[in-house]
Design a protein around this nucleic acid. Structure first.
Lengths: 140, 140
DNA sequence: TATTGTTATACTCTATAACTATA
DNA sequence: TATAGTTATAGAGTATAACAATA
């Protein structure tokens, strides 16, 4: 592929992805602030210490302490002591937290689905192929 | 396309777009806070009043006053009085603002391009087709 | 002494309410 | 009286620095 085409594709594809992302976040926020949702999503993979969460989210430990506190107050997470290391604490999703996470994700998926339903079968085939590639691009 | 496939596609495509968007923002922020960049991008389309900016960005007028003030202090925008309506003010990009905007966009495009360069020609063909469709999905 | 996490303090973005100036 | 914008004030997120508890 010639260089100008790759430059143009990079630009337009990035713009489309960022616009879609922005729309999804704006239109179906789900009542949770972005940083709160992000932490819940991380905890869905398993329990994490505040330090791990701070690193993942690229936020300082005190900020994460605060965020965890707000999630605790909302009943979306709990804290568990580490029996092997008294300094550490594990943050864990509660059932309510899992519910909120599921609801928000569902609302976001629904946003996308409503738009895909407007497309032709041919377009959907292209997007199906593209999604695998985009997932690679997104990484991990 | 069967319903389960559409559901799965909605989910995976949304996830890929949001992850890419997040990565781009994290990896090539460009020194500007998201809300500042967003306003500059809007002003790139033409001058806007603080009220218009507040509405576009879904933010209260006082918040926008503050954001505009920070951009003014940084020399990225200026203010112009409306000769026809003394209550209104127009916010306008400066040359420096346009430069910052261009630099940030370039860094973001470069992020995407670095990843596309790793892909096969066949993948790039698919993404080229998909980009037009995704732009429709993103809307406007 | 090093590490994990929290508390102390300050700065920024956000919002609602009140105010100024203009229509 | 209604509208555009700003200022006043308060709430929440973020950061760095200092502190407590544990390894």
């Amino acid at each position: 592929m010639p260089d100008e085409s790759l430059i143009a594709l990079s630009h337009e594809l990035r713009l489309a992805c960022m616009r879609i992302s922005r729309r999804v976040r704006f239109d179906s926020g789900g009542g949770l602030a972005p940083h709160q949702f992000s932490v819940l999503a991380r905890l869905d993979e398993g329990r994490r210490t505040p330090g791990q969460l701070a690193e993942c989210e690229r936020v300082s430990p005190p900020s994460m302490t605060r965020t965890v506190k707000s999630l605790l107050a909302a009943g979306l997470v709990t804290r568990e002591a580490d029996p092997d290391d008294g300094r550490q604490v594990f943050v864990v999703l509660t059932a309510a937290g899992r519910d909120v996470l599921a609801d928000t994700r569902h609302a976001r998926d629904a946003w996308m689905m409503a738009r895909l339903e407007e497309l032709s079968e041919a377009d959907l085939v292209v997007l199906t192929e593209a999604t695998g590639i985009l997932t690679k691009v997104a990484g991990r």
